[in-house]
Amino acid sequence: MAVIVDILSWIFLVAGGAFCVIGMIGLIRMPDVFARLHGASVTDTLGAGFIITGLVLQAGLTQVSAKLIIIMGLILLTSPVATHALAQAALHAGIRPKLAHDETGGHIAGAEAGAGEDESSNS
């Protein structure tokens, strides 16, 4: 039984570490800020999630597991807020994403003047 738990947490820890590295490789390879956000989000969700699942399996049903689950919950609650704030701030600072397809028709939610250049002046 202990062997099965050990093997499972090996798998989860190695997968989590791999996803952390993959996300950061994405952070290096992607062409602009908005695309890099997706790489960082892989690290925040899958990397952290798998590593903490592996640690919970090792800790068993103890206070340590409860704290680890609290950490995971906090990461899942805070990381989208930080990512969204970052994306919105980058857009308001006048950085335009490099796009292959623009499906918005020039209209960006919340901006009265569409995707114009005057947006950076009134922000």
Binding site: F34, L37, H38, S41, V42, T45, L46, T83, H84, A87, Q88, L91, I108, A109, G110, A111
Partner: peptide, 8 residues
């Protein structure tokens, strides 16, 4: 991952 909400 893969989608980010930019403006709401």
């Amino acid at each position: 991952p893969g989608t980010v909400s930019v403006e709401v």
